[in-house]
Design a protein around this nucleic acid. Structure first.
Lengths: 166, 166
DNA sequence: CACAGATGCTTCGAATCCGAAGCACTAACT
DNA sequence: AGTTAGTGCTTCGGATTCGAAGCATCTGTG
């Protein structure tokens, strides 16, 4: 473990720090906008957005949790909250009694459309404003590759339960 | 407000989503490594790291909070925690009785060195592995500019208390 | 100097978050 | 079918988080 005690040069450090800082700052501002515009937390918005983009407006709990990088128990909490507010419904899946299917309601979609313009405005102002088109493309490309790489590796808590090894 | 209901193209969306996803996934993994290696949360590590990089190993509470994008009350909580564990000390500032100066202790530095190799290993493996040198440079450049832009704008909760305007 | 406003930090209460443990259902193997 | 392992979700307890309010100090102005 930790068998490569190499250190980073300033460019690498800069990239890393900038990444963390930008996402923190962005998240912060977005959070406030969402709270004000539709009384949503960032997580709640992400959940609704994902559901809204789904072809049938629904997902399994686990897939939702993995999608937004969130703990399952945390998702249960938020899903209950959203359900009480009438923004989603929950029902056991037809094919698998264990799993719960979360579906966005019309009211959920309305909330989404109500909140969206402001959300875009914040992103535009904070994230895209200082960037050229090429920068955005580079960012999408580079970060996209990183994401794929991360998703490829054991996505959540590494150790697969068992190795059915020969 | 929201006077620009333009929408994003897929590149922009990709850049945004990738940013969020990458930082979330990264944070998650790093968190676990830190927890295991030195019983630190990510925030605690960030605080120690910042203090460790400071010329005199200390910062004011507010500057620390702004640095890591964190609420003041949250910082108070973590600073107390770190102080109890002997990783930092807190003392009123000499020149301003109001402000508290947080200083990293030798034990804090030791913890930092103990945790660092693993931290670097995670970053190397998860973030830098799929990237060329040029990619890292592009990332540092683009995200660095975004960060500067964000920091330039009213950094925390917008409204300055008063406008001493003419 | 007295005072109002600004600033730095902490306390407080409520919301959110996570991991571990538990419950229910499914799959695989015999 | 019976047994064992795997999977999906929730509950639980404790930790962390934030914003609002409070307290103490500082600063600028009369």
């Amino acid at each position: 473990m930790a068998d490569t005690p190499r250190s980073f040069d300033s460019t690498e450090l800069g990239a890393y720090f900038a990444l963390i800082e930008v996402s923190s700052l962005l998240r912060h501002t977005v959070e406030q906008q969402l709270r004000g515009a539709g009384d949503l937390s960032y997580v709640q918005f992400q959940l609704l957005a994902r559901l809204g983009n789904s072809p049938d407006g629904s997902y399994r709990m686990t897939d939702l949790a993995d999608g937004v990088v969130y703990s399952r128990s945390g998702l249960t909490y938020q899903a209950q909250s959203l359900e009480q507010r009438g923004l989603v419904t929950r029902a056991p899946s037809p094919d698998d009694e264990r799993s719960t299917t979360v579906t966005i309601t019309q009211q959920g979609r309305d909330t989404l459309t109500k909140v969206f313009p402001g959300h875009i405005a914040v992103l535009d102002e904070l994230l895209f404003e200082p960037l050229e088109r090429a920068d955005v493309e580079a960012m999408a490309d580079v970060l996209g590759r990183v994401r794929d790489h991360m998703r490829a590796a054991p996505p959540r808590s590494a150790a697969p339960r068992r190795r059915r090894t020969s």
